[in-house]
Amino acid sequence: MQPLLPKIPLGDAIEWLVDWLRINVAPLFDAIRWVLGGVSDILTNIIQFFPPLVLIALLGLLIWLISTRRQAILAVLGLLLIYDLNLWRPFTNTFVLIIVAVLLSLIIAIPAGIWMTRSRWAEGTIKPILDFMQTMPAMIYLIPAVFFFGIGMVPGIIATIIFAIPPPVRLTYLGITQVEKEFKEMALAFGASGRQVLTKIELPLSLPSLMAGVNQCIMLAMSMVVIAGMIGAPGLGTNVYRALGRIDIASGVEAGLAVVIFAMILDSASRALGSREQSMAVRLVSRWQRRRRERAAKSVELPVAAEENS
């Protein structure tokens, strides 16, 4: 049957575009591939240099520092389980992928979010791109990633970044636009520059929203791990994907469990970064600040009633 309308060769056009990009922008892609590959190799080597138990202890300490002791103990138990299940090596690969992808995402996302608050044009351009990125099925990102960067860690990182970047952009934008106008006006009235308004008013006041963006970014990156495994990004995702292919329940569940444990650790750790009270690091810093303040105010004699009120 003759179709009513001739089909627009949209897919063909995009294929042509991708081909063109691959041929003409190849040096750029090669450079990205080289840098990202190098960074993740170095990181992987550093992490694998530590004996697993030492690294587990270090991670436990780190979580204790930024979160509570309870979270630290749970994290150590979870990591021990991953080690025990013989998944330590894929775990370290996933770890590196997540760190690199999340850091790069945030390096792009936070300035992008700030830019959106500064320019109408940026707001109007970036918003639809974010919508597009978030509604496109995640697996589609694998195709151009493979096309431009081949197989392995680098395309995995790229696909993960594309997938994980929208929430931090949106939440940065949202956080800053929700800062009350009077605060900005106050800063300006006291002689602040645009940059000071950003660093002293907008960013600190939108910190909860920013940290929610970081948390979302990490969680989405985690959920991309398995999909990235399909294009040969080494890590827990590969194990899951392999188990799926062989219908191997045992190793599938084990690898899946490892992913879940890792996700929970990252979730609680990144949440702790956002809340002031529970974090040991914040407490240490604020104690240090208070001491600084007290020293600074020594020249002015302090009213005794200060302690009585507390």
Binding site: E180, E182, F183, E185, M186, A189, F190, I201, P204, L205, L207
Partner: peptide, 13 residues
């Protein structure tokens, strides 16, 4: 010149 605001504009953080 310094300014005082209607809704105080005292920074909560």
């Amino acid at each position: 010149m310094a300014m005082v605001f209607q809704h105080f504009a005292v920074l909560p953080n």
